[in-house]
């Protein structure tokens, strides 16, 4: 369980969480033991405020503006509503062609640049140009974002997110 908590926490820090995670010990199964994972997608905007001392702070708010160039946070909240752990969890989020992964996304984020066939961190991926030559993939090339979680304990929830910019 220690290992699980560490992984979840790492994913959260990397993914700009707003919902604190609550890792609970699995409760003893009463009836048939089965996990039940639910997913909730959301989109948030970054709201910046500057205080009297000139310090800028940011928070995630309900988005109101969707113009080209706008930065948004695409989030995915998960929760295991069942009564046993869900293991080998892989959540995949295809990117709509109207958005691109923001350049300041976590470098450790697992992504695909080939339509979801292969996944890896962006720095390890290549794309082929028109001439067949390959070049290092950029944020603009990302087609899918993926998170892997070894296990989600019963009652455990969290949120992962990635920043995008409307093209």
């Amino acid at each position: 369980m220690t290992k699980l908590t560490k992984i979840v926490a790492a994913a959260l820090v990397a993914a700009l969480p707003v919902v604190p995670v609550t890792a609970q010990e699995a409760t003893a199964p009463t009836e048939a033991a089965e996990p039940n994972v639910s997913l909730q997608s959301d989109v948030k905007a970054y709201k910046e405020t500057t205080d009297a001392d000139g310090n800028v702070s940011s928070e995630l708010v309900e988005p109101t503006v969707f113009t080209p160039g706008t930065r948004l946070s695409f989030g995915l909240s998960y929760e295991n509503k069942g009564n046993s752990p869900a293991t080998d969890v892989t959540a995949t989020n295809p990117l709509h062609e109207a958005v691109q992964l923001a350049p300041d996304a976590d470098p450790a984020l697992i992504v695909s640049v080939d339509g979801g066939t292969t996944f890896g961190i962006l720095a390890d991926l290549q794309v082929a140009d028109e001439t067949g030559a390959t070049r290092p993939a950029t944020h603009d090339d990302v087609t899918h974002v993926r998170w892997t979680i070894a296990a989600i304990a019963p009652g455990e929830s969290g949120r992962v997110a990635f920043p995008v910019i409307i093209r």
Partner: peptide, 29 residues
Amino acid sequence: IENTATATYDDGTGVQTVDSNTVVVRVDE
């Protein structure tokens, strides 16, 4: 712009697949 995530996981008997809701935003002018 529509955004939906899909997750797979092992529930002990096999691989289960679950979709999130779809978030839709319309690009402003």
